[in-house]
Amino acid sequence: MTIPPPRTTAELPPDPSGGPSADRQAPQHGAATFYDPDRHPWPPNAAQVRLFVLALALLGLPLAWWAVSR
């Protein structure tokens, strides 16, 4: 299964509609940039996913139990 690459608006092409300030916000449509694969590899490794799910469960389940207690 191919997971689509992450993309952000930082890599948008120039907007031809322009506008006086379009070029004054230089980072607006700069060079193509994406997630830094050194810091945030994609897809995440299994340990990262397990840690996330575990944290969600440990935080969420006690809170949910309290929330439905009368």
Binding site: T8, A10, P27, T33, Y35
Partner: peptide, 10 residues
């Protein structure tokens, strides 16, 4: 778009 930097984490 304003910062010119990517989103922190995919």
């Amino acid at each position: 778009a304003v910062t010119g930097r990517p989103i922190f984490s995919h």
